[in-house]
């Protein structure tokens, strides 16, 4: 068992426009990427639970060529709205760090 933070080279979040937040996990090599992807630990239900969104709001796209997994969810609030706390969306990745990936 390993935590995602120990396997990923990049774990980042960013706006994809003013309404969406996109979370990228990138891995150093194909073996690590495959291990994480094939584990099934990064799934719609897990992301929905972690971020308190519904299943149908989560998009997960594996991107083989860059050994990356892209997750996109709605922002908590529109960028710049009174309830928004992260205009660029750059600090919304932390809940991903502790996802456990089986050996």
């Amino acid at each position: 068992m390993a935590r995602l933070v120990d396997l990923a080279q990049v774990l980042r979040s960013k706006n994809a426009g003013a309404l969406l937040c996109t979370l990228d996990m990138m891995f150093e090599d194909e073996a690590t990427y495959r291990r994480v992807l094939d584990s099934g630990a990064i799934n719609v239900q897990r992301i929905a639970d972690l971020y308190g969104v519904s299943d149908n709001e989560v998009s997960i796209i594996p991107y083989d060529v860059a050994y990356a997994i892209k997750v996109t969810i709605p922002r908590l609030a529109r960028s710049g709205d009174p309830a928004d706390s992260d205009i660029y969306g750059a600090q919304q990745h932390a809940p991903l760090l502790d996802i456990e990936i089986p050996d």
Binding site: K14, A16, T22, I61, A66, T72
Partner: peptide, 9 residues
């Protein structure tokens, strides 16, 4: 193409 886009493809 991952950057700031919902899909890299």
């Amino acid at each position: 193409t991952l950057y700031e886009n919902p899909s890299p493809y």
